[in-house]
Amino acid sequence: MTLLSVSGLDVHHGQLRAVSGFDISVEEGQTIGVIGANGAGKSTLLRTIAGILIPSAGTISIDGVDVTRMSAHQRVRHGVGLVPEGRRLFPSLTVEENLLSGAYLRKEGPWSLDAVFDLFPWMPERRAQSSAHLSGGEQQSVAIGRALMTNPRMLLIDELSLGLAPVVVRRMYEALPRIVANGCSILLVEQDVSQALAVADHVHCLLEGRTVLSGRPTDLGRADIETAYFGIDAPAEAG
């Protein structure tokens, strides 16, 4: 059953076309990775699916419902959850309040404060602490927990590993299978190719807003990915 379906998506930043002709479909229970270098349009893509940016062409649907014209907060009701780039915790809220902000719509589902605390056992002790005083990895966990509290069916994660120590990154990735097991698909945007390849069922490689390579991680060669990632030998149309 297709959960997220995006077709022919174009997104512009003013004159600049950041995403162009993007298609993707995510099945229930899948983890899909989108990799690409800085400026490839990955974040723009995720922010458009979340409803923060408005596409200039194309459609986005969740579970068969066309959400292209819906604002971000309406999409949350349809099961879209976003872990934004740079975490974006609410600095004047405590850890617990940040998590509870995800429960604003009180949607039914597997995730609750207790379930998130179960996923990240360090949290209960520090629930009353200001979120501004957390380390990068802790902030990322709270951002994931906050998105889970919306009980999403389609979790969008923007740069899970950015700015985190390798050991912390590994711990973050260990949490993903448990999230999927709770009935949630994941669309993951990453600069860190090896992490994305390890966890994803299917990978799209973006270059200058277009998918230049896609397939199952096991089917993709290292050299192909490098070419697609850096755009070496890429068609001269770019520019």
């Binding site: 971000a72 009701r77 509870l100 604003y104």
Partner: peptide, 24 residues
Amino acid sequence: TRTGRMMRAASDDPETASVVGASP
């Protein structure tokens, strides 16, 4: 309260408030 908490959240960052389901 739930709404009061979201008021502080929206004050910090209205865009992120919208991705957790609140209309700023």
